[in-house]
Design a protein around this nucleic acid. Sequence first.
DNA 1: AAGTGGTCTAGACCACTAC
DNA 2: TAGTGGTCTAGACCACTTA
Lengths: 227, 227
Amino acid sequence: MQGWEAIRAEVLRRIRAREWPPGGLIPGEEALSEEFGVARATVNRALTALAEAGVIERKKRAGTRVAELPVRRARLDIPVIRLDVLARGLAYRFDLLADRMAPAPVPVTARLGLPEGAPMRYLETLHLAGGRPYVLESRWLNPAVLPEPAPDFARESVNEWLVMHVSLVSGDIAFTAEPASAREAEVLGVAPGTALLVAERTTQGTDAPVTFVRLAHAPGHRVQMAF
Amino acid sequence: MQGWEAIRAEVLRRIRAREWPPGGLIPGEEALSEEFGVARATVNRALTALAEAGVIERKKRAGTRVAELPVRRARLDIPVIRLDVLARGLAYRFDLLADRMAPAPVPVTARLGLPEGAPMRYLETLHLAGGRPYVLESRWLNPAVLPEPAPDFARESVNEWLVMHVSLVSGDIAFTAEPASAREAEVLGVAPGTALLVAERTTQGTDAPVTFVRLAHAPGHRVQMAF
DNA sequence: AAGTGGTCTAGACCACTAC
DNA sequence: TAGTGGTCTAGACCACTTA
């Protein structure tokens, strides 16, 4: 290992070895660049990487501190469902079960920051892998983000259309385990009450909220992340 | 917005606008730095950020391509359980339910890359939030990573001891929804079959596998991530 | 063999913020 | 107000990989 990665490793070693304790101030970039015999920019590269990893916290004028709680970060790649299925070596298909305008429920508008009872497009899509139910997608979509004429969501899945055509800026995703509702059980072909992995995702665009989606996964589904 | 972030934004705009289509080659750093009137290093900073975000793929000699599948990445901060509980404003406590040496089951040794039937330390910890069961932690720990004398896991939770004292290098985490087993139901105080959010984590150290842990969360638990 | 991205340097300016 | 990190520049060398 050479270059800025070597410096990152050495700084990380000192932190783990408690030479630089949690919450403590570490030497400035200038001092470190002298000690290691490299340019300040190289030290900056190493410290920037450690800051992104959550190991240190940097503030102008205040200097660089070792993070109090050593947080570990994992990265989740949120796939387009079709590609996720194909990557498992299964045939992909989807059914558009519902597509209508309706006043969005309060929890949805609240999370998206839209007025209560705002009319939104509700789309229910069942994604199938190898002919078997894979995910039930229940989506509330802000009609303001759609072009005229609107795309045909029976041909191209909403999921995919959004990824390709709307500049998604930020959002959050939450995972829970829930018993299958009567509707979910029927559509997914499982017994009511079966443990389902549910993902709820909220997405904001550049200038307007875009969508709220709930994904109920068939039993056995794993969401895998590396770190 | 100025500097490298402006360049990142402009490149991202061209990709979303299909000016540079998925899979297509984009101009080299040299060309872009001329067009934008900045140094090549500044363009490099912007493109490096986009590559980390998964928007583009860079290869030496081959140039920079727009990623075929627009993957969205979310970041999960894996918390120390005690701090997670305290952050929710609840009192934290844990009970060490089991602590023994035992031959590890095959799925565990296989995932960690240890020989079949290797003796490992098995620790079962119940974490409580506000006096109520929060997470049941079932852990297989490679005894080779422990110092002599071994720490007292009845005083300091394994979870926390590992984070503070072992240099964890890489690993993976998977989430599933599972019905509560008889044991889990009893310990967590729920009905058997209740939908539980389960996290399974494998961790490698610098020179040896460290641990495999299964976390069964009490009903209602949410794992939240931002992107 | 040649062109690309990855990295480093030495120097500089600036915004921010703790003091 | 002074010191820190954030950023930019112009130039350079190198490893890698594809043609």
